[in-house]
Amino acid sequence: MFRRRILPALAVLMLLTLPAAGQERVVLTAADGVPVTADVYAGPDAGAPWIVLAHMAGASRGEYREIAPRLNRLGYNAVALDQRSGSGFAGIPNETAAAGRARGMRQDYVSAIPDIEAGIAYARSRTGGPVLLWGSSYSAALALWLAGEYPTLVEGVVAVSPGEYLAGHSVVDAAPGIAVPLLIVSPPDEVAQWRPIYEAVPHDRKAHFSPDRGGRHGSSALVPSLSPGSEACWRAVEAFLARYFGP
């Protein structure tokens, strides 16, 4: 169904400055016409790598309100998406999901692909440098699947708590096509669900990390107030980014 050249329609419909420093709210347009709300965290160097941040099930772009500023401090730019499969996080409602419902669109995990495509296209419009895709839980599975099916779509992947979450789409079957640097992060009790995917990636520019203590499902693993193992996870992320994408 999705074996096609990915050329998502991109239109910035609205740009509002928010109180948080370095953060802007934008509304993009997915290829099927659904408006995709995102928060943009642009650092001082727009030419530095951009990281597209996709949330987990039942969540929103609010999953990254503490993570994205830290990425800025490390020298990276970021855009945190609302996908049509989600609800809310940290008091921030998922506007893309509401827009999708209003249009009668499907809201299963795979249906969020056009929203992620729109985020990648936006990042491409902001830089000639590398664009990375960071996914959480189901969107981590989407990130791996997309990187495997479309090896030139992004230049790197961070997948937090991935697994075989995509009905009708096998991540392990797509994994041999992944040609970009990859980091997988998860609590220790989730390793078994992504290990076959990781082993199917054919190159050695890959790494994985699970904290010795604590840990939490999804990108919340990197939020100190939610996960006691967050700093250990951050060290793994920082080492990966510095090795392959030093700004």
Score class of each variant (00 low, 15 high):
1 M>R: 09
1 M>K: 11
1 M>L: 11
1 M>Q: 09
3 R>A: 12
4 R>W: 13
5 R>G: 13
6 I>F: 08
6 I>G: 12
10 L>M: 03
11 A>N: 10
12 V>H: 08
16 L>Q: 15
17 T>W: 00
18 L>P: 03
18 L>K: 07
21 A>N: 05
22 G>R: 00
25 R>S: 10
26 V>T: 14
27 V>D: 13
28 L>K: 03
28 L>P: 06
29 T>A: 14
29 T>F: 09
30 A>W: 08
31 A>D: 15
31 A>C: 13
35 P>D: 07
38 A>E: 02
39 D>H: 13
44 P>E: 13
44 P>N: 09
49 P>D: 06
49 P>F: 01
51 I>C: 02
51 I>M: 09
52 V>A: 03
52 V>E: 03
53 L>H: 07
57 A>G: 14
61 R>Q: 13
62 G>D: 06
62 G>H: 03
63 E>N: 12
66 E>P: 06
69 P>G: 05
69 P>K: 03
72 N>R: 09
72 N>G: 11
73 R>T: 11
76 Y>D: 08
77 N>W: 00
79 V>K: 00
79 V>C: 05
79 V>N: 01
80 A>P: 01
80 A>S: 15
81 L>H: 04
82 D>P: 10
85 S>Y: 09
86 G>A: 12
86 G>S: 11
89 F>I: 11
90 A>F: 12
91 G>I: 06
92 I>P: 04
92 I>Y: 14
93 P>V: 14
93 P>M: 11
94 N>S: 13
94 N>V: 01
96 T>W: 00
97 A>W: 01
99 A>M: 13
102 A>V: 07
103 R>F: 10
103 R>M: 15
103 R>D: 14
104 G>A: 13
107 Q>Y: 06
108 D>R: 10
108 D>K: 12
110 V>Q: 03
111 S>G: 09
115 D>F: 02
119 G>M: 05
120 I>W: 01
121 A>G: 11
123 A>E: 05
125 S>W: 10
126 R>G: 04
128 G>S: 09
132 L>G: 04
133 L>R: 05
134 W>V: 05
135 G>M: 05
137 S>W: 02
138 Y>L: 01
142 L>S: 01
144 L>K: 00
145 W>F: 13
147 A>D: 04
150 Y>P: 03
150 Y>G: 05
151 P>T: 07
152 T>E: 09
153 L>Q: 07
156 G>K: 04
160 V>H: 02
163 G>W: 00
165 Y>N: 02
167 A>I: 10
172 V>Q: 07
175 A>N: 02
177 G>P: 07
181 P>T: 14
181 P>H: 08
184 I>T: 02
184 I>K: 02
185 V>L: 15
188 P>D: 11
189 D>Y: 12
192 A>D: 12
194 W>M: 03
197 I>V: 08
197 I>C: 08
201 V>L: 01
202 P>W: 05
205 R>E: 15
208 H>S: 08
210 S>C: 14
212 D>W: 02
216 R>F: 13
217 H>C: 03
217 H>G: 10
218 G>D: 01
220 S>G: 15
221 A>C: 10
222 L>P: 01
222 L>I: 03
225 S>K: 03
229 G>E: 06
231 E>Y: 08
232 A>W: 06
232 A>L: 12
237 V>L: 15
237 V>A: 11
238 E>V: 13
243 R>Y: 14
244 Y>E: 10
245 F>K: 03
246 G>R: 15
246 G>F: 09
